[in-house]
């Protein structure tokens, strides 16, 4: 029933002389949360950056909504409908919350207004600190701003890189709750080291190790597979 929204086939990425991604295969179905797992340095961030065109793939193909986007520049890829929430959140510190939204807003139509209202209801803090510089927000608020900013555009896919990183457990709960609400409205690729978060949100999973796709399947399978979790995720 679900159709393929994004597909990476045999993707290789080099950063300088280093061969980081090696024949990576990765697939995302519409309407699902696909979790990308793997140890530190496995290549998860590089995979997202390669999808966004921030690190160009040296070979292989990336197809989004049936269109080959492998060679497109980042801004074209974004305009095709992919929102990016980077590991460092990518908040413009000297811009206010409002300006952080506005600078990335591609349209000002009814759909955008509706999503804006919806997301501000989800993250009331952002409304509260509307005129505050992004740099003065707490870590959790920055994360919420980054996710909300990506969501507000007319995107079909959100790439979210380790949203739980550096956040207190209560805040992590809040982020889980909001992504859970968001997944009814959009497709998500979630990079996570926090297995609790991954298992709560994920429908499907991919595991990367040393730049290679080593496993993939449905989240329920992974939750039961102690061996796999121990081997690649270091979870006993």
């Amino acid at each position: 029933m679900e159709s393929t929204l994004l597909k990476l086939e045999q993707v290789n990425t080099h950063i300088d002389q280093f061969h980081i991604l090696q024949n990576v295969d990765f697939e995302v179905k519409s309407g699902e949360v696909t979790v990308l797992l793997g140890r530190n340095g496995a290549g998860k961030t590089t995979t997202l950056r390669t999808i966004m065109g921030l690190n160009g793939a040296t070979s292989g193909s990336i197809v989004f909504k049936g269109e080959n986007i492998t060679k497109l520049p980042p801004y074209e890829i974004a305009k095709k409908g992919i929102g990016y929430v980077p590991e460092d959140q990518g908040i413009f510190y000297d811009l206010t919350v409002e300006e952080n939204f506005r600078v990335g807003m591609r349209k000002d139509d009814d759909g955008t207004k509706e999503r804006m209202e919806w997301v501000l209801e989800l993250f009331p803090d952002l409304k509260k600190f509307w005129r505050k510089p992004g740099g003065q927000l707490s870590g959790g608020q920055k994360q919420m701003l980054s996710i909300a900013r990506a969501y507000v555009n007319d995107n079909d896919l959100l790439l979210i890189d380790e949203p739980s990183k550096g956040l207190a457990p209560v805040i992590v709960e809040k982020v889980i709750e909001s992504i859970d609400k968001m997944k009814e409205r959009t497709t998500v690729v979630l990079v996570e080291q926090n297995f609790y978060m991954a298992s709560k949100l994920g429908d499907a999973f991919f595991i990367l190790d040393d730049g290679i796709t080593v496993h993939h399947g449905r989240m329920e399978q992974l939750i039961r597979d102690e061996e796999l979790k121990r081997k690649y995720l270091g979870i006993a």
Partner: peptide
């Protein structure tokens, strides 16, 4: 103006938001 200021702070992110910097 916002785009220029944001670009000065983080050139990559502004492109990832769909701006041809």
């Amino acid at each position: 103006g916002l785009i220029v200021r944001a670009g000065v702070m983080d050139r990559e992110m502004i492109q990832a938001l769909g701006v041809n910097i």
